[in-house]
């Protein structure tokens, strides 16, 4: 192999870059996200369910919130009819955050985990730490 050291150097650089996800994780403990639903409002509920089934909320809450923004601020529609027929107020502050009053233990838990930075709190008032509005 002629000029072999250049090839080997290039391969070493390539391997270092490709294995970055593994090497960057060395020594860092694996923290699994555990969004907490332990709030006074949720404890009071008999059947602990959000406005839609859990799996649906996990996947689609972003779409629901985005459509709620348009319903409330553009169309003046203030009532959301869930798939099971129940009616809810279209309001982040008064519906979502009433039960999920623990933003840093519920919202942030997963959002930080997957590095998502929603801009809800650019306009809405961010709940204070401790869950009291």
């Amino acid at each position: 192999m002629y000029d072999g050291w250049k090839i080997i150097l290039g391969l070493i650089v390539f391997v270092i870059i490709v294995t970055l996800p593994f090497t960057m994780s060395i020594g860092k403990p694996y923290v699994q996200p555990k969004p907490s639903i332990d709030t006074p409002e949720i404890q009071k509920m008999e059947k602990k369910q959000c406005i839609e089934p859990k799996q649906y909320m996990r996947e689609m809450h972003i779409k629901i919130l985005y459509s709620w923004k348009d319903y409330a601020t553009r169309e003046g529609k203030r009532v959301y009819v869930a798939s099971d027929g129940k009616q809810y107020d279209v309001s982040l502050q008064n519906t979502c955050m009433k039960c999920h009053s623990n933003k840093e233990k519920f919202c942030d838990e997963c959002h930080n985990y997957v590095n998502v930075k929603p801009y809800c709190w650019d306009c809405h008032i961010e709940p204070k730490v401790g869950g009291v509005k």
């Binding site: 699994q32 996200p33 799996q55 996990r58 996947e59 689609m60 972003i62 779409k63 997963c110 985990y113 997957v114 998502v116």
Partner: peptide, 10 residues
């Protein structure tokens, strides 16, 4: 279609 991104990262 939306997927559960937290589970994907797990």
């Amino acid at each position: 279609a939306k997927v559960d991104i937290t589970s994907i990262k797990e």
